[in-house]
Design a protein around this nucleic acid. Structure first.
Length: 572
DNA sequence: TCTGATCGCGCG
DNA sequence: AAAGCGCGCGATCAGA
């Protein structure tokens, strides 16, 4: 059962559709639902089964509907997020020949005239009347039931015309499903929040920085370091937070650095360097994750960041507010399971190089990667067992290193593993010449920048060099895109498969395992102790399922490492 | 005084 | 200025 949900002056309007996107013949009439009744109505419909399956909800953006439904206690099984599907279909090489993609520039669901969503104030939740008083606000004029029905139908037509060769149609369909599932998971994770012990966080801050200072003042330990620096550098008014100020003071003391970055400062032996590095470390902790951060982002024992699915072109998630994807190791001790619960932290070991092996069908490298530690396996053949060298070389190949140790190791890597190296080289060449590359499931790289096109028309030798530099830069991007993006494909499938298994475990009851965090190749489940073992099994099974979904039965493993801990700092 | 760019650093 | 890839965020800085 396909249920389309759209905004309406009185709240919402529902319509049952066929899979193709036409009104369902047995129940074609749209049904308006007042905002106040929406959670109850949706809950009722969600309980219906057709062929044993719950309905699939179709809506413009998951973010516009699902958070408030979750707040009302309504959890749903699956959806189509038309906005996320649309941006994949509009750019995928798999659909490049379709009307949908060809028209994408003129008719898109998300108005290109509007600034990116990140720059707009967040839309009010649908049950707040304001949204419906002004037809131009929020979801806007072109998001009526009819618009969305047409949009969905057009997406289905585009999908149906994808070549079935090499399983392309199935792969793209899988990507769309995984992307919509991701949107639901992001909303559910925000709803659940990361378990965060404010008292432990404050202990960490007090240990490193001293007691909480009055607003706008430096904590005691930072101020002490500041005074020490002023003395050592003979600079009585130094502000170490100012790069210019700091640079001048360093130069006056004969410390000839070109920037004030940590790694460059570490080169110097001057007695002021140690306290300066200590200052920078503590200053960062105070500014990024200090008391102000705690006040702003943690409430009721939970950290609730906003995740932005589709926020990165490669398919990775981004986040908005609170630096959710950059929780420093320093404060991970504050992420702590509730009494009677455990944190299960799982990460896909060396995901990107394994994805490269599978993409390139490099059987020599696959053989080497049978080792639990991929880099050791690769080092054993071609690098005389030198793991560090093998790692640098492989990362260099995926990132496009040209100089330094990684650059020098490339020929060595290419001799032993020509297929893997050739795969990323091809992606780089395609990008340099303005072409498009595509992930395993069909997410394609964006077109070249305006700068790239302009540089192509260069004439002088100077401009030529500049053009080559811009082209190489795009080459490094597309080279990495296929690997990072296919890894994101895998991770999205892993996450969706895991969600399905966790839902099956604790379909009813308040005590249940929840996904609470996701970071590119790592998930965190907050689980009651008696469910820990089945959760671990679910995580591992989901990883296997994801591998099969992407690549089928190939001899490449995607092992996950799992830690069961009370606090996040004990993982890894 | 406000705004956008830049630096620097946290994460994968 | 370029730099092995992708991000977000806070403080500073330059310019209106």
């Amino acid at each position: 059962m396909y249920l389309l949900l759209a905004a309406h002056p009185q709240g919402a309007v529902l319509q049952e559709l066929t899979q193709a996107g036409r009104p369902h013949p047995s129940n074609p009439e749209p049904r308006p639902v007042p905002a106040s009744e929406l959670p109850a109505v949706v809950r009722g419909l969600e309980r219906r089964r057709q062929g044993g399956q719950p309905p699939r909800w179709i809506w413009h953006r998951t973010q516009d509907w699902y958070p408030s439904l979750l707040a009302s206690g309504v959890e749903l099984d699956r959806c189509h997020d038309l906005s996320l599907r649309g941006s994949i279909l509009a750019h995928s090489q798999f659909t490049a020949h379709t009307e949908y993609a060809l028209n994408a520039d003129q008719v898109t669901l998300d108005d290109p005239q509007q600034p990116p969503r990140a720059l707009q104030p967040p839309p009010p939740p649908p049950e707040q009347g304001a949204l419906f008083d002004d037809p131009d606000a929020g979801v806007g004029r072109r998001r009526t039931l009819e618009d969305l029905r047409e949009e969905y139908a057009a997406q289905q037509v585009a999908l149906a015309s994808v070549s079935p060769e090499e399983n392309r149609r199935n792969r793209l369909q899988l990507l769309l499903a995984a992307e919509s599932a991701s949107a639901m998971i992001a909303a559910e994770m925000q709803h659940a929040g990361v378990p965060w012990r404010e008292d432990l966080h404050e202990e960490i801050l007090a240990d490193h920085l001293g007691p909480r200072p009055p607003m706008g003042h430096r904590p005691a330990k930072l101020e002490a370091l500041n005074l020490e620096l002023r003395g050592l550098l003979n600079a009585p008014t130094l502000n170490p937070d100012s790069p210019q100020d700091l640079m001048r003071a360093l130069h006056r003391n004969g410390i000839e650095v070109k920037s004030t970055r940590q790694w460059e400062l570490k080169e110097s032996k001057h007695p002021a360097i140690a306290p300066l590095l200590a200052y920078k470390k503590l200053s960062r902790l105070h500014a990024a994750n200090g008391w102000a951060w705690l006040d702003a982002w943690v409430a009721g024992g939970r950290f609730r960041p906003e995740y932005v699915v589709g926020g990165v072109v490669s398919g990775r998630w981004a986040s908005r507010g609170g630096g959710a994807l950059q929780i420093p190791r320093q404060i991970r001790g504050a992420v702590h399971a509730d009494p009677g619960y455990k944190l299960i932290v799982a990460d896909a070991s060396q995901l990107e190089p394994r994805v490269l092996v599978a993409l390139a069908k490099d059987s020599t490298m696959a053989e080497a990667a049978r080792d639990q530690d991929l880099y050791s396996g690769i080092a054993a053949k071609g690098f005389g067992g030198d793991r560090a060298k093998a790692k640098v070389a492989l990362l260099g190949a995926m990132y496009g290193a040209t100089s330094g140790e990684a650059g020098r190791l490339m020929p060595q890597l290419a001799r032993t593993y020509p297929r893997a190296v050739d795969f990323v080289e091809r992606a780089a060449r395609a990008g340099e010449s303005g072409g498009t590359v595509t992930t395993r499931l069909g997410r394609s790289s964006p077109p070249p920048s305006e700068r790239w096109y302009q540089s192509q028309r260069s004439s002088s030798a100077e401009e030529q060099r500049r053009a080559e530099s811009i082209a190489r830069s795009r080459g490094r991007f597309t080279r990495n895109f296929v690997v990072q993006g296919s890894a994101a494909d895998w991770a999205a499938c892993w996450l969706a498969e895991l969600r399905r298994r966790l839902r099956a475990l604790g379909a009813d009851g308040p005590v249940r395992a929840e996904l609470v965090f996701f970071l590119h190749d790592e998930v965190m489940v907050h689980a009651p102790e008696h469910l820990v073992d089945v959760c671990i099994k679910a995580i591992e099974d989901a990883a296997c399922a994801a591998k099969d979904l992407l690549f089928g039965p190939i001899p490449v493993e995607f092992p996950v490492s799992v830690a069961v801990v009370d606090s996040y700092d004990r993982a890894k």
